[in-house]
Design a protein around this nucleic acid. Structure first.
Lengths: 143, 143
DNA sequence: CTTAATGCAAAGGCTTTGCAGAGAC
DNA sequence: GTCTCTGCAAAGCCTTTGCATTAAG
């Protein structure tokens, strides 16, 4: 199902160093899990995936690492669920479907929406980015 | 500054009953604060405003009431800050500017964006709504 | 009298922080 | 030896829940 083959250790280390973070073993492991393909994971998800991969890191390290990666632009944070933050390894311009019942995120490319006009920004404000969240739920089974 | 005159108690009670919630004193007070004008408040904000208005309610009641109002469609929840939920008393179609530094929300009407095309929904999904968040930050003072 | 709402305190979940120990250069 | 990273546990926030008390019909 999930076919993102693991990245080579070298590739990941290079990517981390390019982003300006020293490639410690824990960080490399987290990067290999998260950056191997575009996906959305919570800190808890990462923790579980690490254990499953036989490579543990402490909760604190996972949280710190995810925050660090997000600051460096390796990941994007997605705020759609009041209970937890999602980290998105897709750094290409895109937006999200959010299944409000399942709590799952799905990407769609930025080109798939046509945002023809944007509102005037408030006085003295500079645009930082635009997030579009399309909330969806399972369609009622067609009768 | 904040000129939303308080709604009459009768008007608020009518609004609550129309929404199907019994107008208890605490709920009426919360409604008078929040529904008097379009605004964004966190639970804590409401608690503070209540005290300032000389009408207290317990923390539990405030949280429960806000959740209840949101379920009834009197309020919308806005998820942009991982730390807390905002309740939005503007029920007209609109989206938000979010000042990522100040943590403040500003509305803009839905007609101010032109969302010409929407992506195809995932298989078996029904649209529930679209939220557009324009992240902004204070423009660097023009040199 | 029965049902619903309030409020206090406790519990809960996610995230951050303090600080000692381990590792890298 | 110095600086950085790790990890455990504790602390912090926001929010929800349990349950006794109070109010309402």
């Amino acid at each position: 199902m999930k076919l993102g083959r693991k990245l080579t250790q070298e590739a990941v280390e290079a990517q981390l160093e390019e982003a300006g973070v020293s490639p410690t073993p824990q960080r490399v492991e987290i990067a290999r899990i998260l950056l191997s393909q575009p996906q959305h994971m919570s800190a808890e998800d990462v923790l579980v995936a690490l254990r499953k991969a036989g490579a543990a890191a402490s909760k604190a390290t996972v949280y710190n690492t995810l925050r660090l990666f997000a600051q460096c632009g390796l990941l994007r944070t997605v705020i759609v669920d009041p209970a937890k933050v999602f980290y998105d390894s897709n750094t290409a311009p895109h937006h999200h479907f959010y299944d409000v019942e399942a709590g799952t995120l799905t990407d769609f490319r930025a080109e798939e929406v046509q945002l023809t006009r944007l509102p005037d920004l408030p006085e003295g404000a500079a645009m930082d980015g635009v997030d579009i969240t399309v909330r969806v739920r399972a369609a009622r089974p067609e009768k």
